[in-house]
Computed example of a mutant assay.
Amino acid sequence: MAEVSPTFNRQRVERAFDAMVRENRSLFGIVVPTVGVAMLLASTESILPALLSFDSSLILIGVVAMRLPLIAGLLPLIDRKAATALVVLAVYSYGIEYVGITTGVPYGQFSYGVDLGPLLFSKVPLGLPIFFIPIVANCCLLWLLLLDERPDRTFIWSSIIAVIGMDLILDPAAVALGFWSYSGGLYYGVPISNYLGWIVSATVAVVIFNWGFEQTAVLERLHHCEFMLDSLTAFVIFWGTINAYLGHLLPVAITGLFGLGLMKVDRFIPHSIYQFKLKR
């Protein structure tokens, strides 16, 4: 019997993964975040039974489901260098979070209020990279499409600003829901120190991601993989809806800018599905 090469096996898995995500775009990018919003708000309003309210397993399952399009999109691009970059990003996310929660540097003093699963060193959620890395990756991918063949410097600075913008959306809602809390802050209960810290984190993370993933290859994959930014659509729906419910007008406006960016590059799911069907 002829031996099946590892390369062939990997390509077969990648094609199957692509097909599964492509056939379920609306599920991962629209249905899951919508259900997630409903369950979190029901937890906040004490409507859900205590057994389900802010359940860490359900939260992690929902987050992973929303990340599947990004994982499938990046998978064919992961060589040794890209894998190294992802490992470094994961280690960095653990390290900076541990320092932050232990010392208050660089984000400001904060503490977790909701169980986000098993803890590393009894302080940092083990699933942290699945929260942190997609924020960086989605911002880089969106700006690669928006800027296309602009100089690297423009892409890097734009991506850093976008990462900070995503945290301007995420943190106010997360604090209001009780995921974590600060001692106080001017921006919906979030201190300015948090965003000064995110300038550092975003810069380090974007540089690492850009080092690990070759821009030309990523851009080519983006042009042929219509679902690669669907996890960003999920982010827009999820956190945009929660902020709207909470009356956080500025985060909602920033979320709208991300939505406009997705529409401009034909990656907002309803419009994207229609456009790619026309191209076929």
Rank of each mutant, 00 (worst) to 15 (best):
F8G: 00
R12D: 08
A19Q: 11
L27I: 15
T34F: 10
V35S: 03
A38W: 14
A38H: 08
A42E: 07
L51C: 00
F54T: 00
S56E: 03
I59L: 14
V63T: 13
V64Y: 06
A72L: 07
G73L: 04
L77F: 07
R80M: 09
A82Y: 02
A82M: 02
A83E: 03
T84Y: 10
V87C: 12
Y98H: 11
V105A: 12
P106F: 15
Q109R: 14
S111H: 15
G113M: 03
D115L: 01
L116S: 00
P125V: 04
L128G: 00
I133C: 12
N138R: 05
R153F: 12
W157Q: 04
S158F: 13
I161H: 07
I164A: 12
L168T: 05
L170P: 00
G178P: 10
G178M: 12
S181E: 12
Y188M: 03
P191C: 09
I192M: 14
S193R: 13
G197W: 06
S201C: 06
T203H: 09
V204D: 06
W211I: 04
A217H: 13
E220S: 14
L222K: 07
H224S: 12
M228K: 03
D230V: 01
D230L: 07
D230C: 01
T233C: 15
A234K: 10
V236F: 11
F238S: 01
I242R: 01
I242W: 01
H248C: 01
L260M: 09
H271W: 12
Y274R: 15
